Deep mutational scan, measured.
Amino acid sequence: MDALKSAGRALIRSPSLAKQSWGGGGRHRKLPENWTDTRETLLEGMLFSLKYLGMTLVEQPKGEELSAAAIKRIVATAKASGKKLQKVTLKVSPRGIILTDNLTNQLIENVSIYRISYCTADKMHDKVFAYIAQSQHNQSLECHAFLCTKRKMAQAVTLTVAQAFKVAFEFWQVSKEEKEKRDKASQEGGDVLGARQDCTPPLKSLVATGNLLDLEETAKAPLSTVSANTTNMDEVPRPQALSGSSVVWELDDGLDEAFSRLAQSRTNPQVLDTGLTAQDMHYAQCLSPVDWDKPDSSGTEQDDLFSF
Rank of each mutant, 00 (worst) to 15 (best):
R27F: 01
K79W: 13
V167H: 03
V247P: 04
D303H: 10
Q240W: 00
L103K: 00
G244F: 03
Q163E: 06
Y283C: 11
Q187W: 05
L11P: 14
S112H: 02
N105E: 11
K84V: 15
V236F: 07
R39D: 08
Y283P: 09
A18W: 09
Q139W: 13
N138S: 11
N34G: 15
S297M: 11
L251N: 05
K220A: 00
S175E: 00
R151C: 02
Q302P: 07
V226H: 05
F48K: 13
T209G: 14
L223Q: 06
A68Y: 04
K123S: 13
M124P: 00
E250D: 04
C119Q: 12
A76D: 15
R95W: 02
L159C: 15
A130Q: 08
Q60Y: 12
F48E: 05
G96L: 03
D273F: 09
A76C: 09
L4R: 01
P222W: 05
E178K: 15
F306E: 01
Q106A: 04
H28G: 12
T158C: 05
T158H: 01
D126Q: 14
L147H: 15
A284L: 00
G63Q: 10
M233I: 14
L85N: 11
L147F: 09
W292F: 02
S175Y: 00
A195N: 02
D296H: 12
K79V: 13
T38P: 09
T104C: 02
D101S: 15
P237W: 04
S260I: 02
N105I: 07
E64L: 07
D280N: 14
K204F: 13
Q163M: 03
V92S: 11
V161Y: 04
I97T: 11
G63I: 08
A278P: 03
G194T: 01
L255T: 06
V248H: 09
E33Q: 14
W172K: 01
A241L: 03
D293P: 12
G54S: 13
A228S: 13
A145H: 11
G45L: 12
Q86T: 04
Q187I: 12
T300K: 05
C286E: 04
L85R: 11
I97M: 04
S297F: 11
G82N: 03
K127E: 06
A78T: 15
Q155N: 09
E109M: 09
N102V: 15
Q155Y: 10
K62N: 13
W292S: 00
E180I: 00
G25T: 03
P202E: 05
C119G: 10
A219N: 08
A156R: 15
D214V: 10
K220N: 01
D273T: 08
D2A: 06
G254C: 15
L17N: 15
A18E: 01
D293S: 00
L107T: 09
L31S: 04
K152L: 02
A195M: 04
E217R: 14
I116P: 04
R261E: 08
T231F: 03
S21K: 06
A219C: 04
M233V: 11
A10R: 01
S224I: 06
P201V: 03
K123T: 14
S298G: 00
S245N: 15
R95Q: 10
S227V: 02
D280T: 09
H125V: 12
W172N: 01
S67I: 02
H282W: 02
C286K: 03
Y118K: 08
S288K: 12
D296M: 15
L17D: 15
T200D: 03
Q86C: 08
L287W: 13
P201W: 02
E44K: 13
V174L: 00
V290T: 05
S205T: 15
T277C: 05
K51T: 08
T158E: 01
K181F: 11
A121R: 05
A263N: 13
K184N: 12
Q173S: 15
A121G: 11
P32R: 09
I132N: 15
L99N: 08
Q187F: 02
Q60D: 12
L206N: 03
I74E: 11
M281D: 08
Y114T: 06
K5F: 05
N105A: 08
T77V: 04
V174Y: 01
A7L: 02
L212T: 00
L66T: 02
Q20N: 11
L215P: 03
S135A: 10
V192S: 08
L107V: 10
E217Q: 06
T209I: 15
T38I: 08
D253M: 07
L50V: 14
S67T: 12
T38G: 11
V111A: 14
S14V: 13
D234Y: 11
S288D: 02
K91I: 13
I108N: 05
S298K: 05
M153Q: 01
S186P: 06
G45F: 04
A164I: 13
Q20W: 05
Q163N: 08
G24N: 00
M153N: 07
E44F: 08
R266Y: 00
Q136S: 06
L212R: 14
Q302Y: 04
K152Q: 04
L43H: 14
A7C: 06
T36S: 02
D304R: 15
A284S: 04
L103S: 12
P237R: 10
G96T: 11
T209C: 03
S205W: 04
D234F: 06
P222C: 11
E235S: 06
T230S: 00
L147T: 09
I71W: 04
